Amino acid sequence: MGVVEGPVVEGHCDPAFRAVREVFAEQFAAGRQVGAAVAVYADGRPVVDLWGGLADGRAGKPWQRDTPCVAFSCTKAVTATAALLLAERGEVDLAAPVTGWWPEFGAHGKEGVTGEHLLSHQTGLPAFDRPITPEEAADPAAMAAQLAGQAPEWTPGDGHGYHALTYGWLAGEIVRRHAGTTVGAFVRREFGPDLWIGSPPEVIARAARLGGRPVPSGGADPVAKHDGLLHRLAEAYMDPESRLNRALHNPKASYNNPVVLSGGWPAAGMVTTPRDLAAFYDRLIRGEILRPDTLAEGVRTRVNGPDKVLLVDTSFALGYMRPNVNFRTPGPGRASAFGHSGAGGSIGLGDPEAGLAVGFIPNLMGDGLGGDLRSYELLKAAYAALG
């Protein structure tokens, strides 16, 4: 691959990781990025910190070094880490029924749900049973109460299904009840001041604007290999009554809406830079956030196989994705990498065996039903640079 020259990509890249810069620049040259940034840490050292393109394509506003962007479901791993830290401190027993600290949650046959169920998409509450407005979603206590009063869509613990948005208020209640604060406040205090789950006006004003133009896949999507699956996914996505549609689109809102960005949605609302996301994973894999034994237990796969919501096989630990079709990981990382991808193509990844931490956030929404190939290409280049 040749180097793509031009002013579109700025920042620092260690010579050993030159391939990451080349891949990133090629994506811009091919029209597969509007604005984006990528950051990589290797053995605790920042080796890649690149950005380029436009933070706002309509206004022609360039992406700057400190431009934050919505990271979508990368948020879930950060929220889960907050719950794991509280468990490590002895504030909560994640293996015990949540009714011990959330009595009202036991309604409608949910009395056996544990904290581990909340963190691994096994609760059976993938969607709200009534329309929720963005304004309502800014009240975590009200969202938790709404979910506590709902009947599960499957027997909790009997299979798993992606809780795209409800996850945040379920897992977030562990934090809210045991730390006495919002997930956003806890995360900023404990993990990093620029991991914004609930952004103030100044951060929203600097944030990149999302665009919905589809991204060419850049290669074959593994999901397409499953006979008929793409058709079923498309049908489910368009059917307002399907579990997939209900899970993804309620609350229904634009992630360019300041009400959403300020609302502190703990499953999908984090606004940050890839640099700060990668730094979070770097600290995590080096034992600066959780003890190594806590992290090892946290990333142990709890569920793997058919997903009752996404219709593909997924794999989850306690809040972290493990390598699968929605968290594409190059071969060298498939046994040890963990993290979370996001709807727009973003990804946060940590690999304690490789000593690698990566953050990537674009503002051009991807179209891959099985995950975004842009992030995979950057991960592949980063792993290859390790030798």
Rank of each mutant, 00 (worst) to 15 (best):
A42C: 11
G168V: 10
R45C: 08
T166F: 05
S254V: 06
E111W: 00
A171H: 03
R176Q: 12
D93S: 06
A164M: 04
F17N: 00
F316C: 02
N256A: 10
H117M: 15
N304M: 14
G124P: 05
P68A: 06
R334C: 06
A247N: 02
A185E: 15
D367A: 14
A236G: 03
D367E: 11
T273V: 07
P62I: 09
P362K: 02
E5C: 10
G198S: 02
V70G: 00
S375R: 14
H108L: 10
L248Q: 02
T182W: 07
G124Q: 08
P258H: 00
G228W: 10
W154H: 03
T133K: 05
D129F: 01
G115E: 09
S242Y: 10
H160G: 05
G192F: 01
T273M: 03
L54H: 11
W51D: 10
A224C: 01
A107T: 06
H249T: 13
V98T: 00
A205D: 12
P201G: 07
I204C: 05
C69D: 02
C13Q: 02
G263Y: 03
P323I: 06
T301W: 09
P240D: 12
D221S: 14
G31Y: 08
G161N: 11
F360A: 08
E235G: 15
D139E: 10
Q146T: 13
G348Q: 01
P201E: 07
E10P: 01
P258C: 04
V92M: 12
G109D: 02
A278H: 01
R89I: 07
V312Q: 06
K76Q: 06
A185T: 11
F360T: 08
M238F: 12
G157S: 14
G387A: 15
E88C: 14
W169A: 08
D276P: 00
P126L: 07
H178W: 04
L310M: 14
L277H: 00
P306N: 08
F338V: 09
N326F: 09
A185C: 11
P131I: 12
A205C: 06
A87C: 09
G184C: 05
L277P: 01
W169K: 03
L125A: 07
A236C: 03
H340R: 09
D49K: 10
I347E: 04
L277K: 06
I361E: 03
W101P: 04
E111G: 12
R246Q: 15
E173C: 06
G159I: 03
P362S: 03
H231M: 14
R177I: 04
G298R: 09
A278L: 05
A42H: 10
A83G: 05
G2H: 15
R206L: 13
P140L: 12
R291I: 00
V358I: 14
G211S: 14
A107E: 14
I197E: 01
E297A: 14
E116H: 11
D276Q: 11
G348P: 10
L170V: 01
